[in-house]
Nucleic acid binder design. Sequence first.
DNA 1: TTTGCTAGTTTAATCGATTAAGCATATACT
DNA 2: AGTATATGCTTAATCGATTAAACTAGCAAA
Lengths: 339, 339
Amino acid sequence: MKKHVSLKDIAQRVGVSTALVSYVLSGKEREARVGQEIAEVIRKTAAELNYQPNHIAKSLKTGKSYTIGLIVADISNPFFATMARQIEDEAKRDNYTAIFGSSDERPDKMRALLDVLIKRQVDGFIIAPTEGSEDHVRYLQQLRIPFVLVDRHFPEIDTNYVCADNHGAAYQATTHLIRKGHRAIGLVAYRNQLVHMLDRERGYRQALEDHGIAAPQPAVLHVGFDRVADDLARDLPGFLGGGRPMDALLFATNTLSLEGLKRLGRLGYRIPRDLAVVCFDESDPFDFFYCPITHVRQPVAAIATRAVRVLVDQIQDGERRAEHVVYDAELVIRESCGG
Amino acid sequence: MKKHVSLKDIAQRVGVSTALVSYVLSGKEREARVGQEIAEVIRKTAAELNYQPNHIAKSLKTGKSYTIGLIVADISNPFFATMARQIEDEAKRDNYTAIFGSSDERPDKMRALLDVLIKRQVDGFIIAPTEGSEDHVRYLQQLRIPFVLVDRHFPEIDTNYVCADNHGAAYQATTHLIRKGHRAIGLVAYRNQLVHMLDRERGYRQALEDHGIAAPQPAVLHVGFDRVADDLARDLPGFLGGGRPMDALLFATNTLSLEGLKRLGRLGYRIPRDLAVVCFDESDPFDFFYCPITHVRQPVAAIATRAVRVLVDQIQDGERRAEHVVYDAELVIRESCGG
DNA sequence: TTTGCTAGTTTAATCGATTAAGCATATACT
DNA sequence: AGTATATGCTTAATCGATTAAACTAGCAAA
């Protein structure tokens, strides 16, 4: 059992040059004017030997790996896992395959992943960039490697990006809480400067302002990415029960939501009786909570498929200008904001 | 801005042959007796030019891609997403990178994925094989491509595998239900012949038998993988309320659990009052359910890291005999089985 | 002076596929 | 007959790195 069947093996067996075999098997027989009979023989022999072209050799020669590097914060986070799946499916349509890596929201890890994948000659990247990774993004631009940012992006850098309308989503969620009669509405967000997080905060504040409601002091509880549970345990009680007690909370991500809901339970809050809640993202628990949770559904599938499209377009035409795609998010109304 | 810096560029700049550069940059300067000064110059120049070795060229020459193909049922399923993340981290220790693909439990898709990844010259596979993919597994054996099966395996084929003790886990879960006083215990499982599913069923039956309890008729509700919600909607009521009504259910996977719990809610069952429940796998909702769910926690991290270890060992020594690793699962007791 | 060794470096083949260019031979056209 | 064109196939360079083998000095020993 030979380890690998190459063009050469087929060529020898048929008694022709490897060139001819290559032409036939890569569908160039018309352009290369290959004879009908010999083409048939070649095809048959290839099938007999179960020839599998060596994609690596092809890549080396053509300079195209048909591989997409996918860098997210954490592939085990359902938000990114779902996105990964959609990207996989969409990429397959164009014969692309994805290699993934998790940055854990750390710019150094992100950079390391970029370098590993650049060495592997990926044709382009789909990236949920970490905070403080502006230079790494510029680095990709210098190298002229196509990429699309998803979920977040950097307003000061002109790049492709595909994301949800975070401002609008937060605005809508906050407005919903206001309509339901809540006035002391707090936001629980990550302590970072990424635009998706800031937009959520801005959308939230804008909604309060537009409805003539003063933001609580403080209005936002900032939580560290890698210490969500601890920070919430320490800070949530004070945040909720400050000068003027909160009567509603908006959680800015699925992870924050889950930890927050757990903590609220331990603190004895009943939802929506003691506190109304809206969460960002989707999460199975939202449906299973004793009080189903009103949440902001991001169009993950649309973001993923569009990101692939934009990337593939960019790969095929490196000169095309950056695309900025923003999808509306949807407020899924359940029962966590009261009647 | 040059697209790519190669060994040649460095060689020209320094005024030596590419061989020398290669020796220095791949740490072979001792064996190749490269001069100290020139080695320094080469290293400095490489750094200046930000040289990134072309991994593809290297792979072509060495025949090693340092890439692992990961094939699971669905990367967006938290069980597999978590596994993917652990595999990513463990593989990185040995400089391996993972390419993933989702089979959707379909053997044809699995085969297609195998072929795509074989063409890409992955050094080995970690696979959660689909039902009916025995021939594809044998195909890998014929090609002498190292692989490790995870989660499931084929008893009749001698391969590496790493999985949980499904029989023991189901036995333990069922025994727990019995101890809690339940007698009419049903199992909800996928309709397939994969060993992990059969083992769960066998463990369940064995526990009943060992405790002198007759299995309900029917004892198992079989559900199609791609029609979980529909099948449950149609069959669950009859299954529960048959001749002798069920007083406890064991769900064989996380997806079945979630759909099952939803359906039970709609049917008006209160847990554990009307029905006790134990679920397989972990899932965020289990903690958030109005009645936290007793469940079987599989050692996903252990399975993933061990699978990588076994695979890497196999890659390095193709002759080593197949390893069979079975990890105990843990019953996490919550409140869904009554006091 | 010749031989032998060592250190330092280059040469060139190789991995497997792609593809421009070249070389025959056959047929068509004037 | 002589030239042009089409057909069918091969040659050989190439992608970028690896590495066995060859080569060149320089120096020591005999």
